[in-house]
Amino acid sequence: MTFDWQYMIDVLPHYKTALWLTLKLAFIGIVFAILVGLICSIIQYFKIKALSNIVQVYLEIARNTPLLIQLFFLYYGLPKVGITLSGEVCGIIGLTFLGGSYMAEVFRSGMEAVAKSQVETGKAIGLSNLQLMRYVIIPQAFSYSVPGFSANCIFLLKETSVFSGIAILELTNTTKNLMGIFYKTNEALFMLVVGYLIILLPLTIFLTWLERRVRHAEFGN
């Protein structure tokens, strides 16, 4: 098997655009997912009435339906009731909706891992609930959550490939299109894999570094 290198160079700009789009959508989606996850996990942790039931329903729906179906609902379903969103916006909302639930679970379990005596000590020196969160619980919970958090980031980034189902020209969809036009399957798939690696390898290295960086906080107490 030989690769048509010239072809690969010719389509490189398409991949470059697709790679940036993938990265952009994933980044925005993950950032929002972290925010949603954080808010949900705090609501769950403090068992805030009513809200915590709503969160529970959200978590169950988000985690027990496939992203593709969530995206279909946003992209094809919502216009029927008069709400039309662009593909990219749907992608970001979908990723946030799914990712938020995964992040919430990881953060919540991290918060519950923080020793009760730490919380009581924090109260005993007069911290408010918010300060307790900010200075005691979240930093420690995050350090417990990092392995799960990393797995979620990588998972969500790869989930962007599902966006190909709603006509977003990210890496996977671009590859499918190019294969359909030029029938250079091997080349296209090879570039697809390389494209994902270019994003994911540095991310993985960063997350491993982060894990080592923040885990040191929890040792020895």
Binding site: Q118, E120, Y135, P139, Q140, N221
Partner: peptide, 10 residues
């Protein structure tokens, strides 16, 4: 307290 809970992150 008994469990000398300094905050390990600080």
């Amino acid at each position: 307290f008994q469990s000398y809970d300094l905050f390990p992150n600080l």
